[in-house]
């Protein structure tokens, strides 16, 4: 690369910023649309009951020492006897999520709805971006990158001589699409972040489709990967925040450098995402290799059962007579 390209400030004003604003607005709009379309489903009786059983068993485990031994033993028998204990899961009946998915057409229907609400606006915005903003070099990131990033950052510009740190407008669109997630969780509140995340919904469903096609994945492990992603995202958001404070100080130098910093943040965001995705796919690969696959609910129950079975009951109350004496002595004196 011989010399730097000089980017027109009009590109910043008419491509970079409008594109970002539009992406944010679309994200917000999509959030509300998907909220409208989300069908209120009645929870399954079995699922509700199982959740409650697990809570109660957990309470029993945590508070076991506060009730007399006889009461504890009676409860343990009620929860974990081999015939009809609440926590006892008969062998082979641990429901596996794939079977659950096929048995419940509502679930597939829901997924379709969510997918549609993702795909249609995405296609439209992509067409719009292609039509209006194709071929711009929109921004430059402030650090050098290797050639491998070219396809990611310079989508739509087929020039091998342009330095990789320049970002094309179409790539900017993609970075926005995948990288605005953290920002949305700030705008729309935390609740959407976990389950009904916008930029993520399509991704989740792709994963579920993968699951359907036999590539076994465990939702809990996906959750773990997601948490890693979220962590990285929030770090990047902090970076963004500190940058915007910095910008207040250097208002004069805002011009191009602001765009560059934003680009850097976006890149970080998308990198974080891919690292997270990588992380939990490897997790699942290892699980698949080990061959441990089980339904989530059944596993929960039997885990609770094991926890109850190994617990040693030691009534804590006799200790409290001495402690009461101590408390009273303190009170009287």
């Amino acid at each position: 690369m011989a010399e730097d390209l000089v980017l027109d400030t009009a590109i910043r004003d008419w491509v970079l910023i409008p594109l970002t604003v539009v992406m944010i607005l679309i994200g917000v709009l999509r959030y509300f649309v998907s909220k409208l379309m989300r069908s209120q489903q009645n929870p399954d009786a079995k699922v509700v009951r199982e959740g409650q059983v697990v809570i109660r068993a957990r309470n029993l485990r945590a508070g076991a020492n506060f009730i007399p031994a006889k009461s504890f033993r009676a409860r343990r028998a009620y929860f974990s006897n081999e015939e009809n204990g609440l926590l006892h899961v008969p062998k082979g009946q641990g429901q596996n999520p794939q079977a659950q998915m096929f048995s419940d057409p509502n679930m597939a229907m829901d997924m379709m709805k969510k997918n549609l609400s993702m795909i249609i606006p995405q296609t439209l915005t992509f067409a719009w971006v292609n039509f209006f903003f194709s071929g711009f070099v929109a921004a430059k990131i402030p650090f050098p990158l290797t050639q491998r990033f070219r396809s990611m950052l310079q989508n739509g510009i087929d020039l091998s001589t342009v330095d990789v740190s320049y970002v094309s407008s179409r790539s900017w669109y993609f970075l926005n699409l995948f990288g605005l997630r953290g920002l949305f969780s700030l705008i729309l509140g935390e609740e959407n972040e976990l389950k009904y995340d916008i930029s993520n919904a399509a991704m989740d469903d792709t994963q579920r489709m993968m699951q359907m096609s036999g590539f076994g994945m465990d939702p809990t492990k996906v959750g773990l990967g997601e948490r890693v992603v979220n962590k990285i995202m929030s770090l990047s958001i902090h970076y963004l925040a500190s940058l915007s404070f910095g910008c207040c100080h250097h208002f004069a130098a805002l011009g191009q450098s602001f765009a560059l910093h934003v680009a850097a943040v976006m890149l970080l965001l998308s990198l974080g995402r891919s690292i997270g995705l990588l992380f939990f796919t490897t997790l699942d690969m290892s699980r698949a290799l080990l061959g441990t696959r089980n339904g989530k609910s059944g596993k929960n129950l039997s885990a609770e059962k094991d926890g109850l079975d190994i617990i040693q009951h030691e009534w804590a109350l006799p200790k409290f007579e001495q402690r009461a004496e101590a408390a009273l002595k303190k009170l009287i004196s």
Partner: peptide, 11 residues
């Protein structure tokens, strides 16, 4: 159990 109540409430 009265003792634990005393302990928890400080008498």
């Amino acid at each position: 159990y009265y003792s634990i109540t005393i302990d928890l409430t400080g008498g």
